[in-house]
Design a protein around this nucleic acid. Structure first.
Lengths: 343, 343
DNA sequence: CTGAAAGCGCTTACAG
DNA sequence: CTGAAAGCGCTTACAG
């Protein structure tokens, strides 16, 4: 059909040999131009680049990976992809990866069931991977990370103080953030602040629960027993409605979704926000400013966390020393849901 | 270090040749066992499988793709990954893909800027792809899909009636869903229903806006001018607060996030929900039942939509005829935000 | 049912 | 700065 010579038929996508032929250089030279490796004269480089553009040549990635052993796929392990913290972290990983020409393949760890954990890992290991990033906010992801072969570069994004896998990581300091909101509530005049906490009991020694506790202790305030809740806001609805002591006037929630449940629970209990109880969330969800009352929260930079985790992975892949674990600032966002207690 | 013979050194991961050697068959036979292609005697099959397990052999996917031309990576193009509709659709694609041993590589089309659209597509095309699924709820994704080479199998998930790319697709019928909620509002006794609509003006002829309009027309009700809003709930806040006519008693929103903004806007305007105005959303977001008042909505099966879109893609890849485009049911979820108008 | 061999499209020493 | 050649680890006709 065509007279472009062998290998340049109309249906077949062009290979590196076609480019070499068109630009009258060797295959090796085309490869060097494309990879920026080795030295190539400007004249030849220009010729090759022109041929590449004319032919619409795109290197065959499979061949590239086979011979070089270097993939551009980053596996991502996450237990959730919707909630603000998880979601924004994943977006951060994706963005930073995209800027480096890496693509992210997401594998969701559905439950803590070892079979689900293994399945999520296997799905990833079926591909040639540059490395794996774990969004290590859940034990299931820690378990998944531990299933990776030692030879696989890995890194994770996590909250400060978590019990976790031994991979390099970036972390977000929700302890300082919790301190910030707790102090805000105390500054408003509340005697103490109650707390809805997600996680197993020992979780209380870490992260936002630790920050809340320390802020209270630093001012010599009474530290109420934290109310245990789950990620499901129904649990915070019940806790706020049924278990919050009558004398509580301020409530710090695990995150904004937890706070949303609490807001509803308090309403069902006939307690007004902020008149009877001040409520604060965590993460500054995009919709929190639209609630009625709008929700006081603290903005965490999950997005930057994701980017940093990806950078940690890249450093590990390139065998550079791990970059410094930057402190990500938290910003208090006071809104209508927090106010001074009634006199 | 080891005496396992050539090629089986300790650091190197085993290849198909190692498995062949260990099970005393040819490489071709190992390949047949692993791929379930060709006929292999049960005895040999068992031996091979044992060797695979013992060596912890995992085929090199890059080599596989290079020679077979068949990748197991599905590219996914989406303009958003957070909102309920987008998010649940993506999860559906991911799940269905995982069940088939395919992994999903997500590429986010950040804006409608042609450069962003092209970048999202290029990121994907850098990999060997089995095909591409587009979450075609936004024009930017349609544009991205159109940039794909004709030889690339593609499919999309979309809403009914949208102006879209010519790829095979699965669709969700938000028109019937809109009819359902609108009728619910009318059944409650409202004279008519106002509407907050996302999309360019012609959008009014399609999807949820069309369903709303037809439900009103079918009962001979006045059809108010739809209030144009964007995906950003701040716009619905303003519209509900500033532009909703005084005599409006019922408001159908584009989605639950839009409704959230509207709820706030109405509150700021001093109008109570549902006493003064009934409000309904769309999509039944996980948090909508926790709002106060809880939000009347209609549940769309985005998750199934995602699964179906993936099935469409697989059919296209396998050159089977496209599966039937199943109708995905919508379920009305009446809650506190809708009630009879005041007498 | 089985094996020997070609070949997928690149990168990378190696030699000049 | 450049090219000829080996080889990455598989799948797949082809021949038996």
């Amino acid at each position: 059909m065509s007279s472009d010579g062998p290998g340049a038929g109309p249906g077949k996508r062009p290979g590196i040999a076609d480019v070499a032929r068109a630009s009258r250089v060797s295959i090796a030279t085309v490869s060097r131009v494309l990879n920026g490796s080795g030295q190539v004269s400007d004249r030849r480089r220009a010729t090759v680049l022109r041929a590449v553009a004319e032919l619409g040549y795109r290197p065959n990635e499979a061949a590239r990976v086979l011979v070089s052993g270097r993939s551009r796929i980053v596996g991502l392990l996450a237990a959730d992809t919707r909630r603000t913290g998880h979601h924004a972290t994943i977006r951060g990983v994706q963005e930073a990866a995209g800027e480096r020409g890496l693509i992210v393949a997401v594998s969701v760890v559905r439950t803590e069931d070892p079979a689900d954990v293994a399945a999520a890992v296997e799905l990833l290991l079926g591909q040639p991977l540059a490395g794996v990033v774990g969004v290590e906010f859940d034990d299931s992801v820690t378990a998944a990370l531990e299933l990776l072969p030692a030879s696989m570069p890995a890194a994770s994004a996590r909250r400060i103080g978590a019990r976790v896998s031994p991979v390099p990581h970036a972390h977000i300091d929700d302890e300082v953030a919790a301190r910030l909101v707790t102090e805000h509530l105390l500054d408003l005049g509340h005697d103490t602040v109650h707390h809805l906490s997600v996680g197993p009991p020992p979780e209380e020694g870490r992260g936002r629960t630790a920050g809340w506790r320390r802020a209270l202790e630093a001012r010599g305030r009474r530290v109420p027993e934290p109310l245990p809740v789950t990620w499901d806001p129904t649990s915070s609805l019940r806790a706020a409605r049924d278990d919050l002591p009558d004398d509580a006037t301020a409530l710090l929630c695990f995150n904004d979704e937890t706070a949303l449940g609490a807001l509803r629970g308090l309403a069902e209990a006939g307690r007004r926000v902020p008149e009877d109880v001040s409520v604060a969330g965590f993460d500054d969800d995009p919709v929190s400013r639209l609630l009625h009352p709008s929700l006081t929260s603290v903005r965490m930079d999950w997005h930057a966390l994701g980017r940093l985790a990806l950078e940690q992975l890249v450093a590990r892949i390139e065998e550079r020393p791990a970059p410094d674990d930057v402190a990500l600032p938290a910003v208090l966002v006071p809104r209508e849901s927090s106010a001074p207690p009634r006199a």
